[in-house]
Simulated scan of single mutants.
Amino acid sequence: MPDVVKTGVDGLDSILNGGIVRDATVLVSGNPGTGKSIFGIQYLYEGVTEFDERGVYISFEENAEDIRQAAESVGFDRWEELVESGDIKVYDKRRMLREQDFTSAVDGLLEDFSSDEYDRLVLDSLTMFQLFFDDEREKRTYLLKFSDVLKQYGLTSLLINEQGAMFPETEIGLENFLTDGNIYFIQTPTDSGVNRYIWVAKMRKQDINTDIFPLEIGEGGITVYEQAGGFSMMGKNESPF
Rank of each mutant, 00 (worst) to 15 (best):
residue 146 F to T: 09
residue 16 L to Y: 10
residue 30 G to C: 08
residue 178 L to D: 06
residue 204 R to M: 04
residue 175 E to F: 05
residue 59 S to C: 02
residue 79 W to V: 06
residue 42 Q to V: 03
residue 114 S to G: 04
residue 175 E to P: 00
residue 184 Y to Q: 00
residue 237 N to C: 06
residue 22 R to C: 04
residue 24 A to R: 03
residue 15 I to W: 07
residue 219 E to C: 01
residue 105 A to F: 11
residue 70 A to F: 05
residue 241 F to H: 05
residue 131 L to P: 06
residue 154 G to Q: 07
residue 56 V to L: 12
residue 189 P to A: 11
residue 142 Y to P: 12
residue 14 S to Q: 12
residue 183 I to K: 02
residue 216 E to L: 06
residue 5 V to F: 05
residue 153 Y to W: 09
residue 229 G to V: 12
residue 179 T to G: 02
residue 159 L to E: 05
residue 93 K to P: 01
residue 106 V to K: 08
residue 58 I to Q: 08
residue 101 D to H: 14
residue 168 P to T: 11
residue 25 T to G: 01
residue 205 K to H: 12
residue 163 Q to S: 09
residue 22 R to Y: 02
residue 199 W to N: 01
residue 11 G to S: 05
residue 203 M to W: 07
residue 180 D to L: 02
residue 190 T to R: 09
residue 205 K to Y: 15
residue 111 E to A: 11
residue 61 E to L: 02
residue 218 G to W: 10
residue 160 I to E: 03
residue 210 T to K: 15
residue 182 N to E: 04
residue 175 E to D: 07
residue 105 A to V: 13
residue 65 E to D: 01
residue 186 I to M: 11
residue 212 I to P: 04
residue 89 K to I: 13
residue 183 I to H: 02
residue 86 G to H: 10
residue 221 G to L: 12
residue 32 P to K: 08
residue 167 F to W: 07
residue 177 F to I: 08
residue 47 G to H: 06
residue 152 Q to G: 02
residue 213 F to L: 05
residue 34 T to C: 10
residue 213 F to W: 08
residue 114 S to H: 04
residue 99 E to T: 14
residue 55 G to K: 08
